[in-house]
């Protein structure tokens, strides 16, 4: 019975396997680092740290009020997430405090040193 049901719902193309899509290409150094970061769980820790720092320094609240202001200006039914990201991202990138960037960079350097890529 289970089989029947699942058969009935299969009306979609076969799931492409992501890893097989790019077998020939050598992964770049950046990608290698990224994979290493994910595998060790360091990326998760870094993201957590970053999240915490950005809350602490008020960056998150700043972004929130920017978003609020934008939504207010455009009218709440006329805003899409894409639009919001498009408008806010440049401001967000620019206003991350240097101290936070430096700390993250230091953490990544230390990681790379210990991971010995």
């Amino acid at each position: 019975m289970c089989l029947m049901k699942s058969k009935a719902s299969v009306n979609r193309p076969p799931t492409p396997d992501v890893l097989e899509d790019t077998p020939e290409r050598e992964p770049t150094l950046q990608e290698l680092i990224n994979i290493k970061l994910i595998e060790t769980g360091e990326k998760e820790r870094l993201m957590e740290l970053l999240r915490e720092r950005l809350v602490d320094c008020g960056w998150k609240d700043e972004m929130k009020s920017l978003c609020r202001a934008f939504v207010k200006k455009k009218g709440r039914n006329n805003v899409t997430v894409d639009e919001l990201i498009h408008v806010i991202t440049p401001k967000g990138r620019a206003s991350v405090p240097d101290s936070v960037k430096a700390e993250l960079l230091q953490r990544i350097r230390t990681f790379l040193g210990s991971a010995a890529l």
Binding site: R12, P16, E31
Partner: peptide, 26 residues
């Protein structure tokens, strides 16, 4: 342990990755 990456460009660390609900293409 999957590390998802974009099926079109192969990048695994762009800001937003979406999996299609119908065919699961990332």
């Amino acid at each position: 342990d999957e590390i998802p990456c974009c099926a079109a460009c192969g990048l695994s660390s762009p800001s937003r990755l979406y999996a299609c609900m119908t065919c699961a293409t990332v």
